[in-house]
Write a protein that binds this DNA or RNA. Structure first.
Lengths: 119, 119, 119, 119
DNA sequence: GTGGTCTAGACCACA
DNA sequence: GTGGTCTAGACCACA
């Protein structure tokens, strides 16, 4: 199943986001081998060059480690993984609060709404 | 500025959602006159037929009232507006919780996370 | 005059080094407009994509600033320029000392040699 | 491990420079027997004729002495060795100063830079 | 097999 | 015009 992309934003960044989530959700477990550029490109149905760019960005972020000719592995840096997860969570929260604000809810309204509705 | 649409889902439903939010956010105030099909179609840069279908759906939902020859008005049924707003808010909350679940958060985690991060 | 490249090391990194030196030597003055990707690619006789990669690296280093659709400029951050210049100088010094070591000179020998021969 | 050569300059001159450094660094000690043309050609992975030409040049420089039928020896002329070493050192220094000049350093700057950075 | 580089060329947004 | 992205495909080093 090829991944699907928005019209907005470069595909390689959408790949980064997608793989990032796959790592944090445990689909690509910490310390395990990361599928090769070619494999991932095939799965996502994009050009290997595009996938390469995405993986190099993930390296730069530290989520993926390059072992040269023996492929890449997912980082096992628990601290980094925790921080990244928290960042993404905050992003989600901000999106949610923004949407709620569009409905006329203040931050306080959000809190009380959540406490009442989330069970 | 013409509105923008996803690839997914019929455009008329996206129009419904858009106008619904405009009403709930107060951009189209309760009891006021609703712009004509032609006006709205022009603003949104869609075919008047598509906008017509959207407005009929909004009528069905009760958010818009048809006065026959004298155009449409936004409902002033505060109860309905409040319910609709709440429904949309719950939808947003579910989207948020689903995203958080994808990051490994439980509902309880969400609560404590929000209490800590939302200030 | 197309630039010339070693067999060793990616061309794009050699481009980075070349442009870096051009900036530090004042050939591309601080604050001035940087030639466009296409211009530079033409001058250096490389593919625009390769030059693009080099310029993006120079951006990352902060030596070049991206102004989106209105081209790039050389940084005017004097501090950064001074630091970069010093780094390159230290690199040169290390190369020199290594070569001297191969001739049997110690660091101290180097110092006295320089004091005597450099005038 | 075969020696490696630049694209620039005849290979036999690169061989001369390489063996010259080997002598000055003590790898081929003064007064000792010099490996035969065939041995050296094999080690360097070049044609014996090319190595022959290199050794003749080293003879001309006096660094290597030809004993006719009993092979060659490294010179034991300490004065010559010292002079040659100094020449090479001066060459290195000039290369270094030229590189520093390209970064905007004067000879004086070089001196103070070295005094500060070399420790 | 792995990752990486480079080219050629199309196409996009922005203004 | 500017920078940026993407594809297709060749080729390289490493082991």
């Amino acid at each position: 199943m090829p991944w699907d992309f928005d019209r907005e934003g470069p595909i390689y960044l959408q790949l980064v986001a997608h793989i990032e989530r796959s790592i944090l959700s445990g689909e690509f477990p910490p310390g395990e081998r990361c599928p090769s550029v070619r494999e991932l490109a095939c799965i996502a149905a994009v050009n290997p060059n595009t996938m390469q760019k995405a993986l190099q960005e993930l390296e730069r972020m530290g989520l993926v480690v390059n072992n040269r000719t023996s492929g890449r592995t997912i980082t096992d840096d628990e601290q980094l993984l925790a921080n990244t997860k928290k960042e993404l969570a905050i992003e989600q929260l901000q999106t949610f609060v923004a949407a709620m604000k569009g409905l006329g809810y203040t931050k306080e309204d959000c809190k009380t709404f959540i406490m009442k509705e989330l069970n």
